[in-house]
């Protein structure tokens, strides 16, 4: 349990507070959710636009991360795991992107979430960047995999803010499929 974040005068408050998590993965699967949980590290939090930038500007560019690293920008109180109560009935949109596109895509997706551009209320849980080879993955997690109108709206907003060409596929995957 972390202390509440304070916002200085002049800072611009965000609709939600966020936590940035880092995870160094590997080719081998984790034996249990508990092992995975222990491998997640909260590397910073933000409650205002200014706090987000001061955190973001300390990060290396996603394109320079080695394969099998993950960055998760999630709402405070939601752990970026399928098993979290906020995620257990949810799912994610998955976009595969070339390394040359990932830095801008990650930044734009973060901007859209922090600025509430998705217009789906509390449906958004967070955004994940996963470095793979040869392509990286950008995912947007939402709470309810059966909420078709929110899911469609998230997809349409993603296509717009990332300026995705029509030939780039965007796939939805409920977490229950992953948990099986």
């Amino acid at each position: 349990k972390l202390p509440a974040l304070e916002i200085s005068p002049g800072e611009h408050k965000l609709q939600y507070n966020y936590c940035l998590w880092y995870h160094k993965g590997s080719m081998t699967k984790f034996k249990s959710p508990n092992d995975y949980s222990k491998s997640l590290h909260c590397i910073g939090r933000c409650a205002s636009v200014e706090q987000f930038w001061s955190l973001y500007c300390h990060l290396v560019r996603p394109s320079t991360l080695k394969p099998y690293r993950e960055l998760h920008l999630f709402k405070s109180g939601i752990k970026p795991m399928w098993e979290d109560p906020s995620n257990v009935k949810g799912g994610k949109w998955v976009i595969r992107l070339r390394k040359t596109k990932i830095d801008r895509a990650w930044e734009n997706a973060c901007m859209a979430m922090l600025g509430e551009q998705f217009l789906v209320g509390p449906e958004i849980c967070g955004i994940v960047l996963s470095t793979r080879f040869p392509e990286d993955l950008l995912c947007v997690w939402n709470r309810t995999s059966t909420d078709q109108s929110s899911i469609n709206r998230i997809r349409d907003t993603l296509r717009r803010v990332l300026n995705l060409p029509p030939n780039v596929a965007v796939d939805y995957k409920p977490h229950c499929d992953c948990l099986k």
Binding site: H12, L14, E50, C57, G115
Partner: peptide
């Protein structure tokens, strides 16, 4: 309450504000 909505351009403008350093 009111939802706090920020456009991308507005957020980008705050990237270099003294409070963001």
């Amino acid at each position: 309450g009111t939802r706090i909505i920020y456009e991308r351009a507005f957020l980008m403008n705050l990237k270099n504000s003294p409070l963001s350093r």
